[in-house]
Design a protein around this nucleic acid. Structure first.
Lengths: 177, 177
DNA sequence: GCATTACTGAAACACTCGTGTCAGTGGAGG
DNA sequence: CCTCCACTGACACGAGTGTTTCAGTAATGC
């Protein structure tokens, strides 16, 4: 459905927000940076809100691509952490956290439901990593909630301090207590 | 050092940002809501950045008051979670997350170092909760990093879903595995 | 009484914001 | 050829931004 030019500009805008943040992006600087104009952005995406929505969807596509490739069975948590702690993914994860926080403060607009949605996404993947006999039990739900919490908390720490060694050790300790 | 009027207005502004968010606050609506004017705000705090800095410090004072009261010895993590999961503290914690994310995206300005600072603050408190013989060991550091990660991750989940039951169960599971 | 200090009001300045208007391009299909 | 259509440029509009200038008031300290 989106035209070639549209996806091209979306990709450029996505690269831009990865380094500049998404919360207080504005059309004119963005357009200038990606060699376009506000007129074209508005024409293609309808409004700024439409653009932000598209960018959020684009970021989510990256995330879902990961979750699709991560596989199932034991060791999912460790593999997820490998991906989360990779320095190359830091801009994406900062963007992710930004959107997460924003969707809590401002429950309307393009951010709506972002936080809730990712919790569900990740819980689903962790569920697929559990032994089959606990997946549908209450204990299973609690267990993957715990795994998710550790991953998210470790990610917060890593993004703030950059101390991959300490945080990774903590995560490993949490896997085999 | 701050005058009576200054702390009075700061308190009012603090109540305001707790419900409206701090990221995209602007002077005129804020001033109108707290019965003041931009002129006065600028006079008392020097600039908008000064005001934001003061508000951030005010929020941090709330946090530090908690950390001072939480005590030491075993059970710190559980007591911290009781505080974090109390519905009354949700606005403060949303504000906290907002500032955390912002300080990662925009490392300059009044937000600078906020994320890093709170990691250090909390690790310090968790350290005081550990048995004395591990406090200075590498294993001790890793252990409280893990505790912090669980608390933070659980908080993220709770803020997004509001499902205190599931998240609290996960945290408890993480304490006595 | 008087000068100093703390605070406040009204209006303006020089922006930036998202968006709308009107006018064009260039190429593809009939 | 000529029409349609995706795309683009220049510009203006109204609203909102942080900040400044100039003016005042009320209370305090000498």
């Amino acid at each position: 459905m989106p035209s070639a030019r549209e996806t091209e500009l979306l990709e450029a805008a996505y690269r831009y927000v990865l380094t500049h943040g998404l919360a207080d992006v504005s059309l004119r600087p963005l357009a200038a940076a990606i060699g376009s104009s506000t007129r074209v952005l508005l024409y293609l995406f309808g409004s700024k809100e439409g653009l932000v929505r598209a960018l959020l969807a684009r970021a989510r596509a990256d995330e879902l691509a990961l979750l699709g490739d991560i596989g199932t069975g034991p060791g999912v948590v460790a593999r997820l952490w490998d991906w989360l702690s990779a320095p190359a993914h830091r801009p994406l994860l900062t963007l992710w956290l930004e959107a997460y926080a924003r969707s809590l403060v401002e429950p309307d607009g393009p951010w709506a439901g972002f936080a809730r949605a990712t919790v569900a996404d990740w819980l689903e993947v962790l569920k697929a990593g559990q032994p089959e006999e606990v997946r549908e039990t209450a204990a299973g739900l609690v267990s993957r909630t715990r795994e998710l919490a550790v991953l998210r908390g470790a990610l917060l720490d890593l993004l703030a301090t950059g101390d991959g060694e300490r945080v990774t050790a903590a995560l490993r300790a949490s896997l085999s207590p």
